[in-house]
Design a protein around this nucleic acid. Sequence first.
DNA 1: TAGATTGTTAATCGATTAACAATC
DNA 2: TAGATTGTTAATCGATTAACAATC
Lengths: 213, 213
Amino acid sequence: MEEKEISQAVISRLPRYFRYLGMLKDEGVERVSSHDLSRIMHLTASQIRQDLNHFGGFGQQGYGYNVENLYDEIGKILGLDKEHNLIIIGAGNLGQALANYMNFERRGFIFRGIFDNNPEICGTKVRDIDVRPMEDMKSFVERNNIDIAVLTVPKSCAASIAEQLVSYGIKAIWNFAHVDLNVPENIQVENVHLLDSLMKLSYNLVSHDKQGA
Amino acid sequence: MEEKEISQAVISRLPRYFRYLGMLKDEGVERVSSHDLSRIMHLTASQIRQDLNHFGGFGQQGYGYNVENLYDEIGKILGLDKEHNLIIIGAGNLGQALANYMNFERRGFIFRGIFDNNPEICGTKVRDIDVRPMEDMKSFVERNNIDIAVLTVPKSCAASIAEQLVSYGIKAIWNFAHVDLNVPENIQVENVHLLDSLMKLSYNLVSHDKQGA
DNA sequence: TAGATTGTTAATCGATTAACAATC
DNA sequence: TAGATTGTTAATCGATTAACAATC
């Protein structure tokens, strides 16, 4: 029922709007104009109005936007009014860290299970939840209405595990493995390539040094 | 000495080129044309040639690009031929996970120290390195030629710690705190906003469901 | 040499910004 | 009402793609 595809550039900015509106809300601010918001977020007012208007006319001429209302609306657009059940594949350092990252739960991303290949890790607990062997993934996904899988496995096995997960009915993959996944286009993938991010920082560091010298 | 500023869009693609070239190198592939590479990376050949030509003419007409040479060149552009000393601020789950993430070391990002405010954590070891109290940051940064700080602290204290780090002479911040940092423009910041990333995945999941229904 | 493929210029596309009529 | 600020159209800017002469 969506009229037109919205560009990923716009979507990438939504969580940031959400964050700033949450701050304003916490400060007790009731209304905000695109111009006010543009100053604190370092964007143009024009871009803010354009972005928001992709989703509807949330503002009012001469008044601006109601902070709480806009906050709620963006939350809904981002799907934060619904609960998402997620499992983590790979109970290494990163997988365990993410399992313990409570901010996700607060936004409706519920940690349901964690899986690992290593028999020594299986049976131990992460946040009161047993680490299960990979063999159990299929039945677990099917029984517990899991829609998001978090991939924190070595890159060598990421592709095949992703394929399995898709066959079990998972709808979205949050991929921390250092590979690009090839999945059917109805499966959503969001990559967090930490090493890529660090390399980008390195580039900016080194190239800035050169210019400065 | 850089001629012109290169857009972040181009820079963001460099680590991905680097990764694919590394794979080709490991497979023993000697040469690759922009067209070949475009097929495996799902880009246009034109974009690849444009991107690479920002940094120099690495190819040869009628031949293409030498895989190993291009791999090395991109590595140099990304600053991977130099070692970077990094410290981690915040020894919680995420900080510890990053300290143990060996892929960084392999690329020249050397883990030198980790700091935390919690006296109970201080003195424990992470990868054979003592967790130090925050008070020690200043002297440690100054003495150990640290250029990158990894921020894995709660958002409430991220801004003030970032400010301190800058005053101690740090050059770049890899920021995992869920806030935007305001630092002088000669300091490089790369944000990894995990919650934002997960929200984007949620949006795509929910909006796809709507369309599909 | 002929074929292949680059480096680079020109054309297109999309995203951002500016402008302004509509309207609260 | 007058002032403020939106929603939206038009203009600009930048990034991507196409085209092709240069050249290995």
